[in-house]
Nucleic acid binder design. Structure first.
Lengths: 222, 222
DNA sequence: GCATTGGTTGCGTGGCACGCATCTTGTGCG
DNA sequence: CGCACAAGATGCGTGCCACGCAACCAATGC
């Protein structure tokens, strides 16, 4: 990467960091008070330049998350080729999203602020394309013909989002990796957890997904 | 629902329809040319009123899709209580999204226009909350403690999105319901399709998801 | 019928995205 | 080493838009 590209990347990250930091400072309620001018100034750049990188404050705030998601495909490809898909995906995703344990304040801002909802979904869904390609390569399926890789990719990013929401729940002190493993195992086993005891309200047993319903691992329980 | 509420709903739908129609007319490239004033006029309402319902053109354009997604929970609850989860979900989702076969032009506008990406994701993800609740109720799990319902809900809406993308692929003439069933079955079986013949590039067999790998039904194949 | 609540509209304001022209800074080549 | 070129960064100007406010109008409930 030449100097130009590095500078560009650095600027992008500086703006993104500044935007997220300001958003956290002003709180989820004062998001409208985060002006473009502030972000640009905080990042040491002109407002016009900020606009060359992002076309909305929301996009800037979520930039870090988006960049991270973009690396998902590469993370999966880096797993050993013989590894079963579920293990490879779990290892790749857990590594990607917990290399440093995520900043709770930042993640909360991104995931729990209504105005950011669209951008946050976009940011997480950026992982879908690369992930689907990597899954197709790993399973020998054809991205154009088979829906399987794309569906799995979407399910996986969904699991990541759900893990984030759950992890941010007030009072949750688990490491993020643990929650992530639980949500991912739901995707791969496609089975509900065994309810402690069927509450059995007289009549109509609740439906069960196909197949048996033993519980390969602890999928749930806060 | 009293007259006021009905009028409100009608206005909302009128604005949404007008917005989507104009967007389709001007094409995905001229989206920026769809002015708020045009939408409002087309809906027979003042621009200020438009703004009381939606806070961006994108939101108005995706309103129909969002409203539909909101009905997902109710659709699932309407299924007989004893039905297995996968069948209930499939029936509910297929019914919801193919009651009238969706308008390809509209869906393409919503799903394939980059500027609408965030709003489209938001629109589809509106199904997640209600779906998760309905799944929790049906499987006897606890939405607060177990991640399973939320993960499944996210996976299902992901499958719907993937089905939409696949169905919009140029040259695809299948009914939407067929594609939808295929993507949903991926979620519930969590198995890749059986590749016709392992291309077997010397060495390293591709990883396989956990469990056996027979193919309960045709998951794929365009 | 009449007061009240809820919805619509017009106006004004602050902010923002983006095109264009200009200047600055890294790059490649002789 | 220096020069021509390319790619960014910046300033300025424009058109659009979201939204607060206050006035107006219509449905509702007594």
């Amino acid at each position: 990467m030449d100097l130009r590209a590095r500078n560009k990347q650095a600027t992008r990250e500086a703006i993104g960091r500044a935007a997220l930091r300001l958003a956290i400072e002003r709180g989820p309620h004062g998001l409208a008070l985060v002006r473009v001018h502030d972000i640009a100034t905080a990042a040491g750049v002109s407002p016009r330049t900020y606009n060359n990188y992002f076309s909305s404050r929301e996009e800037a705030i979520c930039a870090f998350q988006a960049d991270q998601s973009r690396r998902a495909g590469q993370a999966l490809r880096a797993r050993p080729a013989g590894e079963p898909l579920d293990q490879a995906v779990t290892a790749a995703v857990v590594g990607l999203y917990t290399d440093p344990e995520p900043d709770k304040a930042g993640l909360r801002m991104i995931m729990m602020t209504p105005e950011l909802e669209g951008e946050a979904l976009k940011a997480f869904s950026m992982a879908e394309g690369p992930l689907a390609e990597a899954i197709a390569a790993r399973t020998g399926t054809d991205l154009a013909r088979d829906v399987y890789p794309a569906v799995m990719a979407a399910a996986i990013t969904g699991a990541v989002r759900v893990a984030g929401r759950h992890w941010l729940e007030p009072g949750n002190t688990e490491p993020f990796a643990a929650v992530l493993r639980r949500t991912l195992s739901c995707v791969f086993s496609a089975k509900p957890p065994q309810p402690p005891q069927p509450p059995a309200p007289p009549g109509t047993p609740p439906g069960r997904p196909p197949g048996n319903s033993e519980r390969p691992e602890g999928n749930n329980a806060t």
